[in-house]
Amino acid sequence: MGYEFDWSSIPGALPYLWEGMIITLKITAVAVSVGIVWGTLLALMRMSGFKVLGWLAAGYVNLFRSIPLVMVLLWFFLIIPSVLVSLLDIPRSFDTRLVSAMVAFSLFEAAYYSEIIRAGIRSVARGQMGAANALGMSYAMAMRLVILPQAFRNMVPLLLTQGIILFQDTSLVYVSSLPDFFGVSYRVGSRDGRLVELLLFAGAVYFIISFIASQLVKHIQKRKTA
């Protein structure tokens, strides 16, 4: 006796699934943006020549790269809410899970981004700093106007690829039962007894979005080398 697929619960659940997707995209967007900014600072700290800053940044990167993402998420779900509530006098009913997820992903991703960005900065020819300095630019000005723009241009494909991975990883927020796209799919599936269909559907959606995005990255890469 084969399994009878029944997709009928999906159309009615689309509005909830859409809301879940919005949460997923929000977490991705925030984590990518904050991750790149904080990752850039970490990379600059590591390359600054100030030993203490370098150690701190290296310690941070190694720490986050050596622990499973799901544990980082859990810690933040447990820690951030109590911190926020006690610091900001927020009513206990306020849902801090979304903020916690954004903070956790941002901090985690920054560790990975900083390594990409460090390699990107290294990829810019050394003479460029000399030329910028020779024109009277300070180290910071040369970084901002000359080195980083080139580094980021070289890094765009890698940064986007990391963003696609992150988009998929956001499904891990299910540990906090935050209703992201995956969470909603799971809930609708269990509610209607149609978990297999809903998870297949969710998988297909993740696949399509990620696939299109990575094709886009390939396209950008091709245009850059052309």
Binding site: N133, L135, M137, M141, V146, Q150
Partner: peptide, 30 residues
Amino acid sequence: RAHVGMVFQNFELFPHMSVIDNLCIAQIKV
């Protein structure tokens, strides 16, 4: 250095800027 011009063996123009921007950036920022 802003008043000591230097020309390098490998040119070291800024590849992400147009020629005119290469000439303007330090005039404006420095």
